[in-house]
């Protein structure tokens, strides 16, 4: 079991490119389920970036993705990700 599956707590998840985040907190403040918090860590530019502290609450609605002025985050539903993965899956070598 992959780490990812063990932590599939909510309906969706987010992907963060933490190095391009400028810490504006749009995603955190406007997430409808308040699933995100700022990290304790800084990125290289010195900003805190979002982390999915309440993964069970994330619906994958991607509102954070729409809000982000820096194209640093987006959300996706596990369902959609699975579908997509199925489509693009590379056959495993026997």
């Amino acid at each position: 079991m992959s780490a990812e599956e063990t932590t599939r707590k909510g309906k969706g998840t987010v992907f963060v490119r933490m190095e391009v985040c400028k810490g504006c907190s749009y995603c955190i403040d406007f997430c409808p389920t308040h699933a995100l918090d700022f990290s304790k860590e800084f990125n290289q530019k010195g900003y805190h970036f979002p982390v999915l502290n309440r993964a069970e609450d994330c619906t994958g609605c991607d509102l954070c993705g729409l809000f982000c002025p820096d194209f640093a985050i987006f959300g996706a539903r596990w369902k959609d990700l699975d579908e997509k993965r199925q489509k693009t899956a590379t056959p495993v070598e026997p």
Binding site: A3, E4, T7, T13, V14, F15, V16, R17, M18, S39, K40, E41, V51, L52, N53, A55, G65, F71, A72, I73, F74, A76, L81, K84
Partner: peptide
Amino acid sequence: MSESLDLHLALAETELENPV
């Protein structure tokens, strides 16, 4: 680093690109 951060980094590397 927090556990969730680890997860996100892993996902970011293996998963989709930001659609924009």
